[in-house]
């Protein structure tokens, strides 16, 4: 219990440092963070840039007369209340953007992780069983090649093949613009169709990762006494492979699973951007391209929070699996 509490306090501290880091990084930058918004206002309303800057500052809640430190305290205060910022480009709160984009990211990440973990664990266990044979060598070879493909390159290839050559997946969006979100079958099918591209692009490299991880920690398990004792008991090979080897080899991966989930919240920026899939990563990419620092700070903080929750879960899972960790 003390261990868990310690880790929790520690991770909250990391969160605090990360958020503060990004705040100062952005606000210490030469130039005004509200400048981008001001330009768009002045263009829209045909207004003098200085006046537009004033409005922009008001909209973003920035008082330029205030010292940086006061702004920092205000920012933290808002953050703790759950108000993670204001997007200058979309002219709405980051919370609102998160509310409409997070479900899509969660959908894609959740399905991708599930698929890739199951396939990866199977392939890895299979490969380890056939260690040294042609199947195993080809699985390892293909996995290494896949790892050499940067995710965004893979995304481009899938978009090219799926959307342009074969025309089986749409070019962007989470569902057709002319469709009203509902629980109808049509809508669900079209949501799945739109998600397939990102899911495949995320899953393929993940499958390779899990396959190699599973293959890597299986030999160690095979030397355990309980494997030998099962053989001595005359337990069938197929049962040993499944219940004795695979189930034990999966254990250390379960903790990594939580961490992978956390990192994927933010790690999909390029994939979601390439597929124009309106998740967190897509808006993060937009925020970068448009230098929308409010949105950037908010989304980055959200991603860090996600990673921290995932890390925390992973540590708890790990300490449950391996009692030795608690001692440390």
């Amino acid at each position: 219990m003390k261990f868990i509490l310690n880790r929790l306090i520690y991770l909250l501290f990391v969160l605090f440092i990360a958020i503060s880091g990004i705040f100062f990084l952005i606000n210490k930058m030469p130039g005004d963070p509200a400048y981008g918004l001001a330009v768009s206002i002045s263009q829209q309303r045909n207004m003098d840039i200085n006046k537009a800057l004033e409005i922009a500052h008001q909209m973003m809640g920035i008082d330029t007369g205030e010292p940086l430190f006061i702004r920092y305290v205000k920012f933290l205060n808002q953050f703790i209340r759950g108000n993670i910022g204001y997007s200058t480009y979309y002219q709405t709160t980051v919370n609102e953007i998160v509310a409409k984009s997070l479900p899509w990211t969660l959908l894609v990440v959740f399905i991708s992780i599930l698929i890739s973990f199951i396939i990866g664990v199977y392939l890895g266990a299979f490969s380890a069983q056939k260690r040294g044979r042609a199947v195993d060598i080809s699985i390892s070879f293909v996995s290494s090649i896949i790892q050499a493909i940067p995710p965004f390159v893979l995304a481009v290839l899938i978009l090219f093949v799926g959307a342009i050559k074969l025309r089986i997946i749409p070019l962007g969006g989470a569902y057709p613009v002319d469709m009203e979100p509902s629980l109808s079958m049509d809508f669900i099918i079209s949501v799945i169709k739109h998600a397939i591209g990102p899911i495949v692009a995320i899953s393929i490299p993940q499958i390779a990762v899990w396959t190699l991880a599973m293959r890597g920690n299986t030999p160690q398990i095979m030397e355990e006494d309980y494997i030998r004792f099962a053989m001595i008991r005359g337990v069938k090979d197929s049962t040993i492979a499944r219940k004795y080897i695979r189930n034990n080899a999966i254990l250390p991966l379960v903790a990594s699973l939580a961490i992978a989930f956390g990192y994927m919240l933010g790690g999909n920026t390029l994939v979601e951007s390439i597929f124009n899939y309106p998740g967190i990563g897509f808006y993060f990419g937009k925020a970068i391209a448009l230098r929308d620092y409010g949105l950037l700070t908010g989304l980055f903080s959200l991603i860090v929070v996600g990673v921290i929750i995932a890390t925390f879960l992973a540590e708890i899972i790990y300490s449950l699996i391996d009692p030795r960790v608690k001692v440390k």
Binding site: D225, Y226, R228, R233, K243
Partner: peptide, 15 residues
């Protein structure tokens, strides 16, 4: 039936 040494690790921890 043969019960080997190392009884401490002879049972599958996940079962």
């Amino acid at each position: 039936a043969y019960v080997p040494q190392a009884a401490q690790q002879s049972l599958n921890p996940t079962m």
